[in-house]
Amino acid sequence: MPIITYRDALREAMDEEMARDENVILLGEEVAEYNGAYKVSQGLWDKYGSGRVIDTPITEEGFTGVGIGAAMAGLRPIVEWMTVNFSIMALDQVINNAAKMRYMSGGQFNVPIVFRGPNGPAEYLAAQHSQALQTLFVHIPGLKVVAPATPYDAKGLLKSAIRDDNPVIFLEGELMYQWKGEVPDGEYLIPIGKADIKREGEDVTIVTYSKPLRVVEEAAAELAKRGIEAEIVDLRSLRPLDEETIYRSVKKTNRCVVVDESWPMVSVASHVGWMVSRNCFDDLDAPVELVTSEDVPMPYNHRLELAVQPSVEKVIKAVQKVMYLV
């Protein structure tokens, strides 16, 4: 099977969907002539032209709203946010317009649109450019939110997101664009709302998604050396959430750690932790542990910024805690 980068997987998905449906357009800052700030859209402007791959001014609220309006009228736009940090400028459009149009019109309007871009901490970018903002979107009814961690999942989920009749927030990662993985030739889709078991194990369930998957995989390998077999549940979709897969795993292992690179308060991690505590209460041998980013803005200094985020050591420690080894 061909091995390609996460970046190329995203581009393949957009390319294939644009070739398949002329209603799919791409707009955002630097997506066309510059080939994308992170080169995700490389070559698409050459192939599809300025009418379909559209460079916008730096007006996140404006072009996000333009995409939503075009979606209301029948197009299927992909709006690229250069980074999700900048989507804060466009939150009114996402929350008040995209998420609510169908409901407040009594079902008259669909908003088939994808908002995509890199989310989460990167390196040396400091507080405003290095934050995991998924909670803002996951909170909102009327949105779907996905955060794939592998090239395979990224391609299959982006194609599903583009074909979905609802607004989908598609969260990538600046540091993930170079990640490589197997992606088959030809068409496949991954349904939104399905988690994936990335590693099977009997002793503890580690629920995670997006970039921390690698940290969790490394921790699981280390734990295996110590005789602990972790099962890794990669959520892939944050809204809707695949509760069934989480519970099935926890009921098997009786222990659960949730690893999430956003802040701890009112997060995906805290929500999953609550749900597992409530719905697997009789199966749990220990309280659910969370590993999140520290509750501070991201510092610039590299030593400090690494200390903020989930790490292999933190994950191992949390696993040891739910196994009463520390």
Binding site: E61, G62, F63, T64, G65, V66, G67, I68, G69, A70, A71, M72, A73, G74, L75, P77, D92, Q93, N96, N97, M101, M104, S105, G106, Q108, F109
Partner: peptide, 27 residues
């Protein structure tokens, strides 16, 4: 709203629908 007759709302946030209208024009 009346999707059939192209009455596209009815929007509650001051100025928030102006980009939407611009997007319909883009379509």
């Amino acid at each position: 709203f009346d999707v059939e007759n192209h009455m596209y709302g009815g929007h509650g946030i001051v100025g928030s629908h102006i980009p939407l209208a611009t997007g319909v024009a883009l379509k």
